[in-house]
Nucleic acid binder design. Structure first.
Lengths: 353, 353
DNA sequence: CTGTTAGCGCCTTCAT
DNA sequence: ATGAAGGCGCTAACAG
């Protein structure tokens, strides 16, 4: 099961000395020679172009298999003017959001057709610019920029010579293609879900509304409540997306005299803080107060006390969609604008009566 | 600041119609023509080979800049027989360990020299095999396999035609190069640290010892205690790496009559569970009981009640080291064997008197 | 149906 | 100090 040419003498073989890199890979010439045909014929036989004798084709294919031949993508790309690669630039690999998007993107491309270069700019525009340059000089056929959902990001500009899709965070330029999350819908379905569970006094603890996503979620919440003829229970609480804010906000909420029967949270981190304080105060969850998180971050939500229901942004699907859009654009069918994808509820104990 | 050739007539320009892909990139021929020299001279001027008149060089460089020329890596690679790319195969992008390793790997390569193809096998050997094939047919110059630290993984085999470095998890074949974490040392420094804080009754709640990492950490713990003439407080508790196990183990521990003044944990998840139960039972942390986590997973450790001290595996450094090893191997200096990198303590409230 | 010729963009002898 | 020619591996004309 060797990957290299075993058919002809190698340059420097030291028997029994273990792997010997680099070992020359088989070329189309090798295949042709072994099959006793010309290079062109070999090429055609393998690619299925033009008319080829059945026997010849078989011969060539066999030779290719025997030599473990795979076409050199550089030679191919040089001719075709395309590399079959795309670049993926992300801001915050540490931030957990990039990962599922990234996996979705990978799903979206056939692995043996398009490969993905990964670059992390660490939130530094200079690094991003550097990576952009590097990727373009690698002649990627397209780019995906995984951006922060919290704010609209500047476009890479219109003079980038390949199609670009912005994923998760959207580009400021409406002529760009962006795929992002429908945060308003997320807020809405959260409320609708809690209403369906019989809750009427819904409080909200979210992220600071200077962040785009946080503001949109809050908007969806307000709208859905209004549609049901209700208002928020207590003041809406906006703070950092952290556990300690969840704890603090819950204390404030309870001490202000509000008696919510559900608390909807802007993140799972916040929700964890909420759970802790409710627990300390002896509130039964979900019987007295239901808690709904946001992000469905499994390592935070799946093993808490009680386990945490959460809104899932379906980021992997978003990544797939971004890849699809990019493929279309690379094929010449580009569709500018912002696509907003819906979220779903993942139900666990914290909301299950 | 265009990326494309603006110097000569483009094929199809529709003025005012926005970006027009694909726009031809400048070639060395374009540069040479603009500078009024031959392609050979242009090449030499830009690469600094051979003797070139100072003025000629300036001219060429200026032309290159004006045309935004970057050499086509496929043409270059075709000639050089190398692509300047490496493949990175990971098992579990969702599992958080791959990410810092990945970032370290990125740091380890000069972004404008080596680019990284990312592939996630999702723990499926068939997918891994597929990605391996795809990467090899892309002619990567080397491979990094980010593996699970919990078990020794099978080697990709000796007939892979490029150097391979295994990172985080180690390969079963000692002829391979692996960079991994020194789990024994981790256990040891954890104990030594707690001892230095004046703790003497140290309990241990770890992962199941069928997992390699868990067993090694436990070994380090035992050794360090023995070296201090001490033993473990209570039975060592081994279970899943989860919060609920942390909670359960703590209850068992306290109910068994052990009165630890410190609990060392196999993961931050476990530690979070430990914190919760200690909190419920009114134990002051760290005054009565100190708690030490493992992984230093910031989103779990940095905002808990109290914030959690933890052992950090320095995975980013590990990734850098893996990249370095691979670079050396690609340059012909390969160093088989397993490198074990030390961990450090990150101190937060849960252990600070 | 098959082989010959040419060329993708670049670098490297070899000449001048 | 510069240029011309050849070739990396492959595919797309154009013969035959």
């Amino acid at each position: 099961m060797g990957f290299e040419v075993t058919d002809q003498p190698m340059d420097k073989v030291e028997p029994g000395s273990g792997p010997q890199w680099p070992t020359r890979q088989a070329t189309l010439g090798d295949v042709a020679r072994r099959a006793g045909v010309s290079v062109t014929t070999a090429s055609r036989a393998l690619n299925g172009r033009g008319r080829i004798g059945a026997e010849t084709r078989r011969l060539v294919q066999e030779a290719a298999r025997a030599l473990n031949f795979t076409p050199n993508p550089m030679a191919r790309g040089l001719l075709a003017g395309k590399t079959g690669t795309v670049g993926l630039i992300t801001n915050d690999l540490v931030g957990r959001f990039s990962i599922p998007v990234l996996m979705g993107v990978e799903d979206g491309f056939a692995a043996d057709t398009v490969s993905v270069f990964l670059c992390d700019s660490r939130g530094d525009p200079a690094r991003e610019q550097m990576h952009l340059k590097a990727l373009l000089s690698r002649r990627v056929d397209g780019l995906i920029v995984v951006a922060d959902n919290a704010r609209i990001r500047p476009s890479l500009g219109r003079d980038v010579p390949v199609p670009v899709v912005y994923a998760h965070g959207e580009s400021a330029d409406p002529a760009d293609m962006s795929v992002t999350v429908d945060n308003v819908q997320a807020g809405r379905i959260g409320v609708e879900y809690l209403l369906s569970k019989g809750r009427r006094r819904i409080a909200y603890v979210g992220g600071v509304t200077t962040l785009k996503g946080a503001a949109e979620r809050a908007k969806g919440v307000t709208e859905a409540l209004a549609a049901a003829g209700l208002g928020l229970c207590g003041e809406p609480m906006f703070g950092p997306w952290s556990e300690s804010w969840g704890r603090e906000a819950t204390s404030l909420l309870l001490e202000s005299g509000s008696a919510p029967d559900a608390i909807m949270c802007g993140s799972d981190h916040i929700a964890r803080g909420v759970l802790d304080v409710l627990h300390d105060r002896g509130k039964a969850i979900p019987q007295e107060v239901a808690v709904l998180g946001h992000d469905n971050w499994v390592s935070l939500a799946a093993d808490s006390r009680p386990t945490l229901s959460s809104i899932d942004m379906q980021l992997q699907g978003l990544g797939r969609r971004a890849a699809q859009l990019l493929l279309d654009a690379m094929a010449g069918r580009s569709a500018p604008g912002v696509v907003r994808l819906p979220c779903i509820i993942v139900e666990r104990e914290s909301t299950m009566v």
